[in-house]
Design a protein around this nucleic acid. Structure first.
Lengths: 229, 229
DNA sequence: GTGCGCAAGACTGTATACAACTTTGTGTTC
DNA sequence: GAACACAAAGTTGTATACAGTCTTGCGCAC
């Protein structure tokens, strides 16, 4: 346990981290207005710090800021959703391949522990935590590939994916996709680079196809489009 | 001409843009200390705005900020340099492929105009501007591919590449690589997706091999490593 | 009753003020 | 003369204050 975020002083990184965590775990739904005074009071810091945190999140596209109109938890459009997964499909499969070629027993053990935690969270019914761990798994793979720059991109894309899932997930595919993670771990452990790449590619395709990205959807249509028919 | 950045009021986006431009054009060398009061006075804004701008740039890795020790123009390490070009090699070739498949005559005309400007800047001896335009070319291709998310990543990577070039470029390859851009444009215009992908891959490889990324280099070694032998 | 205009409230954008930290220069002691 | 301690200058971290903008609710005219 113990997120790197939890035990620090009131700096903006921490506030940003706490907010990001809440967004990632679907405790702050897309569209929620984030009032600076309010957030500041919750965390016991001034608006200065909150503002800095919100700007960081806006830079990661987890929050949108409009001049004089405040900050809201982002509502990725369908187009943006497609773009996010397009970017992931360019970055992650080949990164998984590199990871398979470089992974050490220590890496594999840590990944295994990570997967165990995922299962635990799922069985405990903590779907928010499960979702977040499931995303972190992808970042971990980039770390194993020893590519911090790519890992940072993937971390951002994973966070945005969490918002996309909140908006466009269709429940029918309730079976959590942790099987895919198990298979990936095995491919990494065995050093099967090509297989790891293919598995990751397939995993991402599965993810996209579990979303409803046909235009008619219900969620982010900002009031103007929502009230037509 | 007329950068989108130039004519605006004193918001932090503008300050960040102006600073980024200066970094991109090698007018602010890596390692330069950016004192908040000083920058604020130059742009006629308060430290609040400057701070916000610096944080944005830090998020893009153009600037490093250490607690209580201020902001400096970043000095990418050799490792980071490799990572940046690794990320580019994952994103750009396949994005060039998409662009070739989608490009319209309007796109091609705009790209051609862009390249003409590049040549102009080179012949005018304005190497800073030439460098920046040359980077923007890569972003434009992602825009033609209609992938704003990927374009944003590439924009960041291109900006960081500018710092990397400032640190590790070996002058001997003085011939500016605008031939590569010409060839790419032709591939896009002809809709030759596979060729565009290959050309981009080769172009990036050429770029990397024009750098001196052997560990012994002179530049970013922060004093501690610099004073060993 | 409907529509317009205006005023109050709420929130954001920016500047300024103060506290805390880091660095640098000076003086004292051994 | 060298090393340490301390003081002063400079810079950042955070809070607060004020100005500007958007929203909303009320009242007045038609």
């Amino acid at each position: 346990m113990s997120d790197a975020v939890s035990a620090m002083d009131g700096t903006s990184i921490t506030v940003a981290g706490r907010l990001a965590l809440a967004i990632h775990e679907h405790r702050l739904p897309p569209g929620t207005k984030l009032i600076e005074d309010e957030v500041g009071e919750i965390f016991g810091v001034s608006r200065t710090v909150v503002r800095s945190a919100l700007q960081q999140l806006a830079h990661d596209r987890l929050v949108t800021m409009q001049k004089n109109r405040g900050a809201h938890v982002a509502q990725p459009t369908i187009r943006e959703a497609r773009e996010v997964f397009e970017a992931r499909s360019l970055l992650e499969p080949r990164t998984a391949r590199s990871a398979a070629a470089r992974s050490t027993p220590t890496d594999i053990a840590r990944l295994q522990a990570h997967i165990d935690e995922e299962h635990l969270a799922i069985h405990a019914g903590d779907s928010g935590r499960a979702l977040r761990l499931s995303g972190l798994f992808h970042v971990e793979i980039a770390r194993i590939a020893d590519q911090d720059t790519i890992a940072a991109f993937i971390a951002q894309l994973v966070a945005r994916s969490s918002l996309i899932i909140a908006l466009y997930w269709q429940k029918r595919t309730a079976l959590c996709e942790s099987h895919a993670h198990d298979a990936l771990l095995r491919a990494l452990a065995d050093g099967k680079a090509g297989l790891a790449e293919d598995l990751m590619k397939g995993h991402l395709l599965d993810l996209v196809s579990s979303l409803d990205l046909r235009g008619a959807a219900a969620a982010p249509t900002s009031l103007k489009d929502a009230l037509r028919p």
